[in-house]
């Protein structure tokens, strides 16, 4: 198991790792309380309750991310060209000296 870099020391890390195999990791980890409380929906940060599969480092290719950032870059380039060559260079009265 990798060293937990966002988090605290080794002791708590070990405690956590023991429950790490389970899928909705975090519902269990909270101890006995969670269940009786009002619907989990009223608690912020419970997205990991909806995990249906654990994806490790090697099972995950961020292809969706690549698609999004490529679309973003295309927009950036298009807007830059428009702003620079049409809006800016197309204006009257430009400082030439």
């Amino acid at each position: 198991m990798a060293v937990d870099s966002t988090a605290e020391g080794a002791a708590s890390s070990a405690a956590r790792t023991s429950t790490d195999g389970g899928v909705p990791a975090n519902a269990d980890s909270q101890g006995d309380s969670g269940q009786a409380d009002p619907p989990v929906d009223s608690i912020v940060g419970t997205a990991d309750d909806g995990i249906v599969r654990e994806l490790g480092h090697d099972d995950f290719d961020p292809v969706g991310t690549l698609v999004i950032v490529l679309i973003y870059m295309a927009i950036l380039i298009g807007m830059w060209v428009f702003m620079y060559f049409v809006e800016f260079l197309g204006r009257g009265l430009t400082v030439v000296g």
């Binding site: 290719d61 961020p62 292809v63 991310t65 690549l66 950032v69 490529l70 870059m73 950036l76 380039i77």
Partner: peptide
């Protein structure tokens, strides 16, 4: 990751 390397290269080109 290979995709992130590609993105890094494109960002530099940009």
């Amino acid at each position: 990751h290979a995709y992130e390397k590609l993105w890094l290269a494109l960002a530099l080109v940009l």
